[in-house]
């Protein structure tokens, strides 16, 4: 069976109908376990004190903010190359979730930064690229809203997505390019020496799994909503024509 068969809206709706519910339940369980574990049952950091508990929200939301744009990039490319409507509707559906995740990452980062760096904000490479990514998300949503013809809107937003992907990758790798920023290096690493302690790492992984599952449930549900909205629009046009 080919993946492209799910570009058919009916097949997509049938498949996702079975996935959304379990994804919601699993995300709720993972988030509850991860956040309760992290908040109540992990120690304070010897330098950062209790502010380390913000990591369970900040790191997963920042990871999602970047990866949602990457997902939008892939689905936009599928639209531009193969013209599958479900694909571009998935990108459209993901954008508000990306805004939310970027907002959480920026806010929790600022709240964490104030006691640790002495400031809520600095024009650090990672922070700045994240702010630009946030503005790209808003621009992407505004562009969809501004253009009436759905295919033209899909084309132009897909091109915007390609341009914005520079900042998504910059947000991810900024800490590797420039060392002079305030922001610390990546919290998670395959190198045991560089990775954070297991006592923080394991509940953080559970929280990341919870965020990924929540995104999966929400983006599938929102894509289903977009498909239904298109169908209502098509019926309304047919009614007007007859």
């Amino acid at each position: 069976m080919s993946l492209w068969e799910y570009a058919n809206p009916r097949r997509f709706m049938a498949l996702t109908d079975r996935i959304v519910g379990p994804a919601f339940v699993l995300s709720g369980v993972a988030l509850a376990v991860g956040l309760i574990w992290g908040f109540f049952f992990t120690p304070d950091d010897f330098r950062q004190g209790s502010t380390v508990k913000i990591i369970y929200l900040h790191v997963p939301s920042a990871m999602m903010a970047i990866n949602i744009w990457v997902m939008m990039l892939v689905t936009s490319l599928v639209w531009l190359i193969r013209r599958h409507h479900v694909s571009v509707l998935a990108a459209k559906a993901a954008a508000p979730l990306g805004v939310g995740m970027t907002l959480v990452a920026l806010f929790t980062g600022a709240i964490w930064g104030q006691p640790m760096w002495g400031t809520f904000w600095a024009w650090d490479p990672r922070l700045t690229s994240f702010l630009i990514l946030f503005l790209f998300y808003l621009g992407y949503i505004a562009l969809w809203a501004a253009i009436e013809d759905p295919d033209t809107a899909a084309d132009l937003t897909s091109v915007l997505c390609l341009v914005g992907s520079v900042f998504a990758f910059l947000s991810r790798y900024a800490v590797n390019f420039w060392n002079q920023g305030l922001h610390q290096g990546a919290s998670l690493s395959l190198d045991k020496e560089e990775n954070i302690s297991d006592v923080f790492w394991i509940p953080l992984l559970v929280c990341i799994a919870g965020f990924v599952l929540l995104f999966l449930a929400l983006v599938l549900m929102r894509t289903r909503t977009e498909i239904r909205r298109r169908r209502v629009h098509a019926i309304t046009i047919r009614e007007r024509a007859t």
Partner: peptide
């Protein structure tokens, strides 16, 4: 847990995050 000197910062981070995520779920 005793959040010590950073109780306001940690609580605010959790509160705002829950509000934003809750709003995403509700609107969806």
């Amino acid at each position: 847990p005793d959040l010590g000197a950073y109780a306001v910062e940690v609580s605010l981070a959790y509160l705002v995050s829950f509000v934003v995520i809750g709003a995403l779920v509700w609107s969806t």
